[in-house]
Amino acid sequence: MSSRDQISRDEVAHLAKLSRLAVTDAELDLFAGQLDVILGAVARVGEVAADDIPPTSHAVPLQNVFRPDELRPGLSQEQALSGAPASEDGRFRVPQILGEEQ
């Protein structure tokens, strides 16, 4: 594998910023290297695809799988929140969200 052709250090820094992760310079070097190896490995799949193999996003040749618009029982509020690290007033509680609003 050639190094650093899948993801750059700058791209990792950008992703870290988007995901609000504080990443040190040393970590950036480390993660960029590791991610590059992972992405490089995945990219090798593309190398075996010849012209006669069309790109696909699914392993099975299915389409139009639908369900009827019918209610199905879900979770209670208690069950829904049972795995949450923190909750309040029946809602999931998350740390302060910085800088953006959907």
Partner: peptide
Amino acid sequence: GRIHGAEYSLLDY
């Protein structure tokens, strides 16, 4: 009720 100045957020899904 805006994000700025909020200490934390509560989510209803």
